[in-house]
């Protein structure tokens, strides 16, 4: 593989977290070990998140009000950019993402082919087999909605595993504070004419992540948020 060597310290892994205190230390440990600069954005958790992180060399940012995942991600992007991050990776706190795949997401960016990579669990048959059927149906619906709203027809939707360079960081200004940001990111990519690519990733569906994941009903909320955004424009 054509890999340019990059100091992992210049790779900022941003992790929005809301009441993930019981698992977050496990999620962070391998990232810290790999030498990434880890940034946790605590979205006003009411559990022991802050204590769970106390002994780890990670950046800790706290929202004093619960704003939602989109806002937490945007805080992370702004923070990483202000500290001069070369590359940024969005990573889930609940242990769904595999830290070993960060290199795969970064590679197309580091060799200068694209500005932003989006993880997709619909690229490899073995990854598709992992997705629970009910989830698959919802995701297919989300893919359709993303396509209709943005004109970008991707293989996956609402996959929080993404990587980008500084150019993309400067363009990502999400205003949707809740889950509709996943579609908004696509609109921003299109608007800023960023080069993008989907990279196959494996999503681990543990009982914990399934419990914490979005309920099917919430997809209706996301849809309403998107319509509101299109009507009110803010």
């Amino acid at each position: 593989m054509n890999m340019t060597t990059v100091d992992n310290q210049n790779v900022f892994v941003i992790i929005p977290s809301y009441n993930e205190g019981s698992v977050i230390a496990n999620t962070l440990a391998p990232l810290v070990k790999a030498g990434y600069t880890v940034v946790v954005i605590d979205d006003c958790s009411t559990d022991n998140t802050a204590e769970a992180l106390a002994n780890l060399p990670v950046h800790y940012l706290k929202h004093e009000l619960n704003l939602g995942q989109g806002a937490a991600l945007q805080t992370g992007v702004d923070y990483a950019y202000s500290l001069g991050a070369q590359y940024l990776v969005m990573f889930d706190a609940d242990g769904q993402h595999n830290h070993e795949e960060i290199a795969n997401l970064l590679n197309p960016i580091q060799i200068g082919r694209v500005d932003i990579t989006l993880g997709s669990r619909f690229k490899r048959p073995e990854d598709i087999a992992q997705i629970p059927p009910s989830r698959k149906l919802i995701l297919k619906g989300a893919i359709l909605i993303n396509g209709l709203f943005t004109g970008m027809w991707l293989t996956d939707a609402h996959n929080g595993f993404r990587a980008m360079n500084r150019k993309a960081m400067a363009q990502i200004k999400m205003r949707e504070s809740r889950m509709a940001h996943a579609t908004e990111i696509l609109s921003l990519i299109k608007k800023a004419d960023l080069q993008y690519e989907e990279v196959p990733v494996k999503i681990v569906y543990t009982d914990y992540s399934k419990m914490k994941g979005q309920s099917s009903l919430n997809s209706i909320n996301i849809l309403i948020d998107l319509f509101v955004k299109n009507i009110f424009g803010s």
Partner: peptide, 13 residues
């Protein structure tokens, strides 16, 4: 809220 979070960022441990 986001501005305050960035201004008060802390680095562990």
């Amino acid at each position: 809220v986001r501005k305050i979070a960035i201004e008060q960022a802390r680095k562990g441990p």
